[in-house]
Amino acid sequence: MEIRFLGTGAGRPAKERNVSSIALMLPQECGGFWLIDAGEGTQHQLLQTPLKLNKLEAVFITHLHGDHVYGLPGLLSSRSYHEGSGPLRLFGPEGVKELVHDMFRHTSSALDYELIVEELAEGVIYKDECMTVEAAPLKHRVPSWGYRFTEKNKPGPLLTGKLKALGVPPGPLYGRLKAGGTVTLDDGTLVKGEDVVGPAVKGRIITVLGDTIPCDCAVVLAKDADVLVHEATFREGMEEKAHKYGHSTTVQAAVTAREAGAGQLLMTHFSSRYSHADLPSLELEARRVFPNSFAAADFKVFKVESKT
């Protein structure tokens, strides 16, 4: 799994960064990718990556401020021109259905694929054979949500040394035992899968928060996450301004990561007052509180490794 930042700026596009959008590459066996937010110009940012719209399977909107949704019209429309575009799920706060409906009604646009729009409720909002997605409300000037993406646990590895000692021949029997089955050997020995398979591999957890001031729900969503993506609109010392506009500072993001026991903090949604040259100092502020902190930049890719 990988996180690819398509836009890391707050409020409006800047020369060095676009507004909010993040691509989450799903596990290889699941294929495709998901988007979290779609600020203005998101489809243009995608053109600078290997990602194709016909591989986009879901979009998760954190809140309806323009710098998080103004890229939706073009993105959804352009997807119709990509062969093989299957159904697309769109999740977002109350009002996202009306937004999409009016957008297409007033522009006389039509899609060549099924668009499934779902407005958020707290708890599990989506589940398939690979991932579970939970949502919870945050604290911002408008309803803003955070998402917790949890990968399904994977079966543990076969204990080949134990299999050889028991006399299990390589081949189909290995697959049956890996799946948790039971086999009987020629000499009558009964071998159970649970006895020759190691502990399950814990699924990775990625938490992505919308715009927010520090709040309890942020910590709950990020509990034991391998990666927490948190806005850091302002630097340390600007807590009063951040609170006024419903945002967080670098240090506040780091405190949330520390309290949640997250493995890694990726900061994004930086004010246009900060240039790329400021990113190292913003990282240092956060690292004094949470050492494994990083400032994201447009097109930067982070591999998601399990912290256990």
Rank of each mutant, 00 (worst) to 15 (best):
A260D: 15
E114A: 03
G263T: 05
D195T: 00
H106L: 08
V220H: 05
P214F: 00
R17F: 14
A297I: 04
S80A: 03
T107V: 06
K164F: 12
F60K: 03
L138E: 00
V19I: 04
F5W: 09
S21C: 04
T249D: 07
G41E: 01
R12Y: 09
T160F: 12
K178S: 07
D278E: 14
D186Y: 05
V96Y: 01
G92F: 06
H140Q: 09
C215G: 00
G71C: 13
N18T: 15
D226N: 03
V69C: 10
L46I: 02
L99V: 03
L173W: 01
F299T: 12
L24R: 11
F294T: 07
G66Y: 13
R148E: 01
H44W: 09
G71Q: 12
I205K: 02
A277Y: 15
A58H: 11
P172W: 14
E240Q: 10
H140G: 00
P280C: 15
G180F: 07
D67I: 13
G31L: 03
G146M: 11
A38D: 08
K164S: 06
A297K: 13
T308E: 14
S272T: 15
S80T: 09
P157M: 14
G84C: 09
L185C: 04
L190V: 09
T132A: 11
H247E: 12
V220W: 11
R273E: 06
L282D: 12
R204H: 05
L138C: 09
E240K: 14
N153G: 03
V196G: 05
G66P: 14
E305S: 01
L35K: 11
L76P: 13
M238R: 15
H101V: 13
P137M: 02
L111P: 06
T250P: 06
T207I: 02
G84F: 03
H269N: 13
T250I: 08
G7A: 07
D112H: 04
D224M: 07
G41R: 00
N292Y: 10
T160Y: 15
T189H: 04
K15T: 11
V220N: 00
R258Q: 06
G32F: 08
R235Y: 14
S144K: 03
F290H: 07
E259V: 11
L56K: 01
C30E: 07
K152L: 05
A135H: 01
R12S: 12
H68D: 13
G237H: 07
V301K: 06
G84M: 01
A10E: 10
H269S: 09
E129S: 00
P93D: 08
P169G: 11
M1W: 11
H65E: 15
C215Q: 01
H68F: 06
T182H: 03
F290S: 12
K300Y: 07
T256L: 11
E285D: 10
L138W: 05
K97A: 02
K178A: 08
D67M: 15
E114I: 05
L177Y: 06
A296G: 02
L26D: 06
H230K: 00
G188V: 12
F234M: 07
K202N: 02
G84N: 07
